[in-house]
Write a protein that binds this DNA or RNA. Sequence first.
DNA 1: GTGAAAGCGCTAACAT
DNA 2: ATGTTAGCGCTTTCAC
Lengths: 336, 336
Amino acid sequence: MAVTIHDVADAAGVSIKTVSNVVNDYQHVRASTRARVQEAIDRLGYVPNLSARQLRSGRSNTIALIIPYLRNAYFAELADTIMRTADAHGLRVVIEQSDGSRTREFDFLEGPGVRTLDGVLFSALGARQADAELLASLPVPTVLLGENILDGPLDHVTMKNTDGVQAATRHLIDRGCTRIVALGGSRGQRGGSGVLRMAGYEAALVDAGLPFDEGLVVHVADWFRGTGYTAMRELIDSGVRFDGVVGFADSITHGALRALQDSGLAVPDDVAIIGFDDIDENLYSLPTLSSIDPGRSEIAEVALRFLVERIGGSTEAPRTHLAEFAVRERQSTARI
Amino acid sequence: MAVTIHDVADAAGVSIKTVSNVVNDYQHVRASTRARVQEAIDRLGYVPNLSARQLRSGRSNTIALIIPYLRNAYFAELADTIMRTADAHGLRVVIEQSDGSRTREFDFLEGPGVRTLDGVLFSALGARQADAELLASLPVPTVLLGENILDGPLDHVTMKNTDGVQAATRHLIDRGCTRIVALGGSRGQRGGSGVLRMAGYEAALVDAGLPFDEGLVVHVADWFRGTGYTAMRELIDSGVRFDGVVGFADSITHGALRALQDSGLAVPDDVAIIGFDDIDENLYSLPTLSSIDPGRSEIAEVALRFLVERIGGSTEAPRTHLAEFAVRERQSTARI
DNA sequence: GTGAAAGCGCTAACAT
DNA sequence: ATGTTAGCGCTTTCAC
């Protein structure tokens, strides 16, 4: 059997309360007592039982991060950033993959596992605006990342989807592009990132006095590389002409880039292309991929700050924070 | 306060034991009783408290996966595969990032958090052969993934590093390459994957009667894209001539690919290049990257099977399993 | 500054 | 087939 607080107490000749005080860095413990207890802890190799601590205190110092897919580089990089930021708050992070399924999202959010957590960061993909009410009655503090549910009952930290894509589109226009493909527009729900990003595309066209051509809008069902590849191949094969592409996620944009090249189109000479997310891969692809940096570390920092405040009992009205974005210019949109 | 088993028992007019029996799908419960209890559970919205269950039973149905870096696509894809496999065993997975640091690895393995877990899958990077003894006395069942500690006290599931790189090198030789760079050889410890892969490279040269040239061996400190890029640039700038590259990890190989192209070398015409890991990115790079598929799903399946057996109390002698590999031929090594 | 006692919610051992 | 009881290891409350 493992060493318990009682064993330490016996060995040090004190009560378990005193051992607990030492373990938890309680201030008012006589130095000599503390030393004696610490010696016993070290000698016996005592390690506190977190299950017991959690059952009693109701706190686990652990939060969950719900994301759709770990294989998607954007989410893997987000998870990494969040884990490191959480570390600084003394919080551990467990990652849940939802596969973008609303059912899986809520199975987790309402299941027994979530109650062992101090809070949740929820990057929703399946959940909709209509689920706002369900989100209002979750058992633990939750902060939303990403889109889909706007003006909901929860703190919400995300990126400037519309402004970012508008800047990306303007970047292509400034470069001389006039027929720009919007890759990743989704027929999806109001408030989904596909829709928000589409708005940025349209706004940039309006600003520049360029016509909006429905034939340049490519819808996709998901954001895997292969989906971007297939969609771009089909567009090219359909005979549509264009000189720029703004991809709504780097993953599909890399697929599209490859499709352009397979079709004999030179990038950026024939077609300039820019993505969104600024994943590590962009720095080493051929050509390197211009992208919108959505401010991942700002998102991680603010989301954790909000969550820690809620865990601490804050009952402020729900807040929304949009991280600053930046255009990262690389070879795929270089001037010829 | 949350609804407890007592509340349900009162509501259903039974004892807490009966509620527990229903919740845990114990067979010998009268159908009518079960229905009554279930109704109370649903009506009250009872959800079991996992902390209490774990404290009492000593089981959490959760395992940890320790990996160096989530940002590295190989590990992100491995984590995904393992999470899905674990799901089928009814196990949850928490991911720990070690940054490849021995200290971080052992801080976790010997810390309080690990005792709340039923087992650990440990992809060691910092730990060494010399740590074998420490690994023998871990508090929970642990299965090793990857290299570094061979013939240790634990079950060990990994890939055919030597055979895989030997096949990759032979693939280049078959294609006509005679001066092949080994990218990723490490001066590291005996048993590290860099060393094992290096052995495969040398074996293939011997088989083919090709000379071993130390000048074609490039050492790297880590496996990030940028490291591969820099190392390849330096090699090229040094004036060494070569017509093939076998990269010991896809990440550094993608960096090297980009460096070749930046230096005006055509792939595969001037230089053929093959990697190791078979990450998703290989399918969409320009050119697509040939690679060794190390058998990730087999690794995940066997590792979980071993771990589940150990959790079940198996005291068999430590086993080693090497997954089958496969050469995935793509454009980067296509015959001209 | 330290101790005694209670009890978090559950499962397991033993009754019946 | 169901009930009773004990106790997992800890933190918390209240004494002193």
